[in-house]
């Protein structure tokens, strides 16, 4: 464990908690893409199946349980509890165009052709594009609530911190996983546009409005 990975995980945890808090407090999931949340729940389910087979550490297991539980709790809030506030008309990104290619690529490009490894690879590829429906929703509505932009900033930062973690691990442990690194770069690059808007607008107290 290193500082980059720890702050990355905490940033990830913060993002998930901010999202739950926003929906619960405002009793509304407006501006939130349910489709992205479906993808995230899929990512965690596919990736954390080893939760019961190989124990890494208490921290690792606890975080996995929290991520899976929070993902499904968010889905419940969006599609059941506060369904009336779900922005169905704008949340239209075709996630099958993300799921199928990621599944295909995971079958072709992986470290080992075993169930757990292919599912892990699928979750890595899917996570790199899982935010697209959310970014698409923000671009369609042309704006995002400030709390939602904090959620996106924390979520985008987590994988950027993981990139630093991989650089650290490469130099100090000789460890690297090309699949995770390439997908992590793609994932972080997708946030760049949002990071720019967040830094130039939200930090200065102005609302996150996309230039029309």
């Amino acid at each position: 464990m290193n500082i980059f990975r720890l702050t990355g995980d905490l940033s990830h945890l913060l993002a998930i908690l901010i999202l739950l808090w926003k929906i619960w407090k405002t009793r509304s999931c407006s501006g939130i893409s349910g489709r992205s949340q479906i993808l995230f729940a899929t990512v965690y389910t596919a990736r954390y199946l080893d939760l019961f087979t190989n124990f890494v550490s208490v921290y690792n297991s606890v975080m996995k349980i929290i991520f899976i539980a929070a993902a499904f709790a968010t889905l419940y809030l969006i599609y059941v509890k506060f369904k009336a506030t779900y922005d169905r008309n704008h949340d239209t990104f075709r996630i099958e165009f993300l799921l199928a290619p990621c599944a295909l690529l995971a079958l072709i490009l992986n470290h080992e052709f075993t169930i757990l490894e292919v599912l892990w690879t699928f979750s890595i590829y899917l996570e790199s594009v899982a935010i697209l429906p959310q970014l698409f929703l923000v671009s369609k509505t042309g704006e995002a609530e400030t709390i939602t932009s904090h959620y996106l900033f924390a979520l985008g930062s987590y994988r950027a911190l993981y990139l630093l973690n991989w650089i650290y691990r490469y130099y100090f442990e000789g460890f690297f996983d090309l699949i995770a690194i390439v997908a992590g770069i793609v994932q972080t690059v997708l946030y760049c546009d949002f990071f720019y808007l967040y830094i130039t607008r939200v930090i200065k107290g102005r609302a996150l409005k996309l230039p029309a």
Partner: peptide, 10 residues
């Protein structure tokens, strides 16, 4: 090349 890395990352 098979990388038998233990998955210790989240």
């Amino acid at each position: 090349k098979k990388q038998t890395i233990i998955k210790d990352e989240l």
